[in-house]
Design a protein around this nucleic acid. Structure first.
Lengths: 335, 335
DNA sequence: CTGTTAGCGCTTTCAG
DNA sequence: CTGAAAGCGCTAACAG
């Protein structure tokens, strides 16, 4: 019976190359001055043996890890997948790796997750939003590593916030649509308790209406998470009411695309009979027969910038900062 | 100037609770017999101090980590986000955490990624597909940790494959549509070099046609990754040809949804004038005015089962295995 | 340019 | 039920 050979260590490579462990270590990390001949000899030995570095031991010894904790509410929503893509893209050249956790929009799950991620001594934690439990917030503060709160910039961050003002986006949406002549506003949304940012956009929208002496003529709130199907059904019930809006603003593009499908199915001609407006600027909305009128949020960029900031300044400095990644109105053809 | 206090260690907690380090360690890991009084005292001390375990040190000492390496080609494609969701869901009760890497469909990026993930001494690696470089395959084999190859079961796995037969899905699609009376088959796809599974489905489809003495009357291959917009444009050019298919099979739902949008925009009545068929069973397809006819692949389940298998049997055993998660034809209303 | 020594903070093993 | 000693595999700090 062949015994399982012990895993290769630095010592094995060092022996094979006839140098000390620390020399191999330095070569593998690209630090310090190394003669070209030893470097070559050691790298050969690495190839020959098939040695794979043990980052666990390295991290313990150096007290600096290459892991980044990432806490997101969900992956069903493509928005957070985009953020994660951005994070990964920003990390790409650095050798850092994301360790991810999904909260499912639950604050207590988030609390457990943050604790379990901190146990891996990550170089930083990237987390979505500001809605944390007190314990979560305290732990993050005490950790003294960099903490980046994403998506939102409407609150005071622990360390750094990267995102856009959702209130401002709602406001801009309202003003834009009023400017285009719409007066009878309907709203179709999803569960606000798990999506504070949707609520902030709604606040901004209502504020824009107030500025113009208007108010929402009707609205429907779907109880669950946003989805195309939910948007379709919610618009259907809204239109059964007697309020006859001339434009319906949706909590996001997923919901709005469902609204578009409903109109297509019912023969409602978009913009002539009814205008629809979304939020996010998803690809699917732009590929519709008539491109969806919406607001482009820069999710990928948010994730990327978060990482770039971490790499740029790995130490937390005293004062919380905020980076605004902005948004753009996408006129489209549905409003 | 307040000096940064050193991070808390087991020793601090042990001192506070007046026990030895090992006792604290045992309590935190729930191993060995511990008296209820000491347990309480220690847990109190943990709370008081705000101690957070150092998994890095623990992993080094015990040589068993709670990390799972995850290698996926992309997150732009919701299919892989679904897989990752399944992985996370399966991991949920275990305290394991995924460390993810994205290859962008590049084999050399995958090779680097696998090496860098192995350096974290994960308990297992979950990777999409069978298309690895020789070096990647060798490293994975040599690692002796569990390796799960996802999505596909049409090749021999290193250790375990979890997925479905894409060839069989293509075959089933063809037979299903022939059974419904279609005879003039068109095909609209995307880049096969990065998506071997799409190619396998095509193979199966063509085989079904051959069985019935038929062949594809026309096809269009988009050069890039699949997208709704690409599907829309590719169908448009296909229909400009003179081949007049009565059904068009798409490489996946994203592409097919684009096809549906084209038909809506052009006033082509689905199923009466032209039938369309997708692959994946995405939500967006089912929310369309007419639900898309497609094949449901069980992405979430694939991820979940992969993890469950790892937790169930953490050691690799000699012989490679395969788990078939199956698929179902979704009749829909577009074919 | 290369090496020696001394840990990093835990857990394993063996005692009691 | 609790503890002491040893060491996981690497890197920081200091020599040479």
């Amino acid at each position: 019976m062949a015994e399982t050979p012990a895993a290769l260590t630095l010592a094995d490579v060092a022996r094979a190359a006839d140098v000390s462990e620390i020399t191999v270590s330095r070569i593998l990390r690209n630090v310090g001055p190394i003669s070209e001949t030893t470097r070559r000899r050691v790298l050969d030995a690495v190839d020959q043996t098939g040695y794979v570095r043990n980052q666990i031991a390295g991290t313990l010894a150096s007290a600096t890890s290459n892991l980044i904790g990432v806490v997101i509410p969900s992956l069903s929503n493509i928005v957070f997948a985009d953020v994660l893509r951005g994070i990964d893209a920003g990390l790409e050249p650095s050798g850092f790796r994301p360790v991810v956790g999904i909260t499912d929009y639950k604050a207590d799950a988030e609390e457990k997750l943050v604790t379990s991620l901190l146990a891996w001594k990550p170089a930083a934690i990237i987390i979505v939003g500001f809605d944390h439990t007190d314990i979560t917030r305290r732990r993050l503060k005490q950790s003294r590593i960099r903490v980046v709160e994403l998506m939102d910039i409407d609150s005071e961050p622990i360390d750094l916030a990267v995102g856009m003002s959702h209130r401002a986006a709602g406001l801009a949406t309202g003003r834009h649509l009023i400017g285009r002549g719409y007066r009878r506003f309907g709203y179709v949304g999803h569960d606000w308790t798990t999506d504070r940012r949707a609520r902030l956009r709604w606040d901004g929208l209502v504020q824009a209406l107030e500025e113009a002496g208007l108010e929402l003529v009707d609205q429907r709130l779907h109880g669950g998470p946003s989805s195309t199907q939910a948007g379709r059904e919610a618009l259907a019930t809204l239109l059964q009411g007697a309020k006859h809006p001339d434009v319906v603003v949706f909590s996001n593009d997923d919901m709005a695309v469902g609204g578009v499908f409903h109109c297509i199915a019912e023969g409602i001609v978009l913009k002539r009979d009814l205008a629809l407006f979304g939020f996010n600027g998803l690809d699917v909305g732009q590929a519709l027969p008539k491109p969806l009128s919406t607001v482009r949020s820069n999710r990928f960029r948010i994730g990327k910038i978060a990482v770039e900031q971490i790499l740029l300044r790995p130490e937390r400095n005293g004062t919380p900062e905020t980076i605004n990644t902005g948004f753009e109105i996408v006129p489209g053809e549905t409003a």
